[in-house]
Design a protein around this nucleic acid. Structure first.
Lengths: 333, 333
DNA sequence: TTGTATGCGTTATCAT
DNA sequence: ATGATAACGCATACAA
């Protein structure tokens, strides 16, 4: 490995002080344009790139941010991550990626790691850590964006961005009701998932509005993926053959549900209507095309990073954003 | 934001020197067990976490690695990233994530950024940068893993890991030939994609072995996603109605192909057989289930990180790995 | 316009 | 076993 070129190396070659090189590199005033150009040229020739850690130590700004997600292999977070990274790149920031697998210990480890790396800000997605502990950790960061996680105590350096899961679920169930369904099941994520909880609230609200009794045996909680969705739906359909609609936590689960319905000989949407959430790319391509609620995840990622940048710049943006999903009516429900 | 607790703060409270605290925190010899415990306890109470950037500046080891991918929203890379991050976490490393969108300028920017951040090593996926420039950049890193990119000049600090795309494609085409197909199309990624190039090589090799003439009008290059796959297949089928098999660059493209076939009234696999690559989760669930070649992407990610760690530890592992995909026969071909 | 001294938080090295 | 000092690479504050 080639040795690092330092500002001192450049200063020597250019026959100036380190400070002059520093000023030239950072586009700061205090030297003639001619000299600046000369230094920049020498730096380029020497392939000099300032050490951001040394700079960070000196300035206490690392131009790095942390992105904490349950799992980057989940398309939901991958698309958000793409948006975050794009916006970060556009603004000269680098991003640390950390997966937590939705485990509390990992979430804590993630926040400690980010702190150790002196990140400027963090985007924390779907945190399951308790309110109290979140507050405890957040006070060590200068700026935080909380995605799909509410915070009861507003803080000046924190913005929350939440998808309106409740409204989306409520609309979906209303759609079921309008098309004559009455035995409506909900396949949610684990109970400590805030998103799933909010979707359950919407589900209950819609049923209550329509004066349809809530049957708790029609509500199940699973780790939300295709296979579990399929199994949960198969179980529900065998125990409750009268089910005529299923609201799924997300599209992955919904696609599993579709498979289970086919296997059980149920026509979709004739016998059972199905609605998912997220509108992942495959949802429009499977048979039947899935009715779902859509949010632009890439935009959410970009918005999150943009908001974080605002916070870092000292702006005082609104303490919370709500992203409104749009119900996409296709054939499954 | 709360002010950072430093080693000096802890030293004061514990009434010892900074060095003693440092030794205690790093489990180094040079102090009684009793004192070590006392210091550790005080550090914990003060919520002291060493600054990795300061430590990095002093030791020139940042315990960070860079992961460069074309796009994290592509499931292929997302799953690899998951494996990389998991293995990194297990070994106390943090990972910088950078998307390049397969753009050369971005790839260069990515490598400069990683260098500026003094990362210990990098995992570079599907790099399109020229051999010469890659060598130029790589010499600044102490360890590099190149994924799905060959390097003609072996270097002591570089390991390449490649999926055997050629063999996989060759096997797929052989399968087509064995089932009587003769008009076999290939829908590949852009021409500067090494993976796609290798798949094309396999495609040609299989045809040559079977003494089937290669018709270049049956080969097209697209940005590999579902929609483009669908459009490319529709175009191919309308121009060449006699096509009886299509090899797709990956499953996403293959799924698009499936849609196009249905729209064109082609039975699968009766009229047209289709084989993809990657075995993404949905491939087994769509109708008809997709024949494809499978590699364990999470494992590849873990292997990459493991290999990088080995390199950093000064081990001299084999200069290259080849991952052998497995043809998964389902119903589409 | 340019340079010097100092500090960021930590560890290596050398001393005690 | 413990501590003092320098150094890592850079920028801030101040001086010239």
């Amino acid at each position: 490995m080639k040795k690092r070129t330092t500002i001192s190396d450049v200063a020597h070659v250019a026959n100036v002080s380190m400070m002059t090189v520093s000023r030239a590199m950072n586009n700061k005033p205090g030297l003639s344009d001619e000299l600046r150009q000369k230094i920049l040229k020498i730096a380029a020739e020497m392939d000099y790139h300032p050490s951001s850690i040394a700079r960070g130590l000196a300035t206490r700004k690392m131009t790095t941010v942390g992105l904490v997600v349950p799992s980057i292999s989940n398309q939901f977070y991958a698309q958000i991550a793409q948006g975050v990274e794009e916006k970060a790149y556009e603004n000269g920031y680098s991003v640390f990626l950390i997966n937590t697998l939705a485990e509390l210990a990992r979430e804590e480890a993630a926040m400690n790691s980010l702190r150790a790396h002196d990140i400027d800000g963090a985007i924390l997605c779907s945190l399951r850590t308790s309110q109290k502990k979140v507050l405890k950790r957040i006070e060590r960061f200068s700026a935080v964006v909380l995605l799909n996680r509410e915070l009861h105590t507003p803080l000046p350096n924190v913005v929350t961005i939440c998808v309106n899961d409740q409204r989306a679920a409520q609309e979906a169930v209303q759609r079921f009701l309008e098309t004559g369904r009455r035995r409506i099941a909900y396949i949610g994520a684990p109970e400590n998932s805030f998103s799933s909880q909010r979707r359950l609230d919407g589900y209950c609200a819609a049923l209550k509005n329509a004066k349809v009794a809530i049957d708790s045996s029609l509500v199940v909680h699973i780790m939300p993926d295709m296979v579990n969705g399929m199994e949960a739906a198969a179980m529900l359909l065998s125990r409750h053959p009268d089910i005529d609609a299923i609201l799924a936590f997300n599209d992955l689960v919904a696609i599993g549900v579709l498979q289970a319905c086919k296997a059980a000989g149920k026509k979709i949407p004739g016998d059972v209507a199905v609605i998912g959430a997220d509108d992942i790319p495959m949802s429009s391509l499977i048979v039947p095309p899935l009715t779902t609620s859509r949010v632009n995840l890439n935009n959410i990622g970009r918005l999150s990073m943009q908001t974080l940048l605002g916070l870092l710049a000292g702006e005082a943006p609104s303490a919370s954003y709500t992203i409104e999903p749009e119900l996409v009516l296709r054939e499954s429900g």
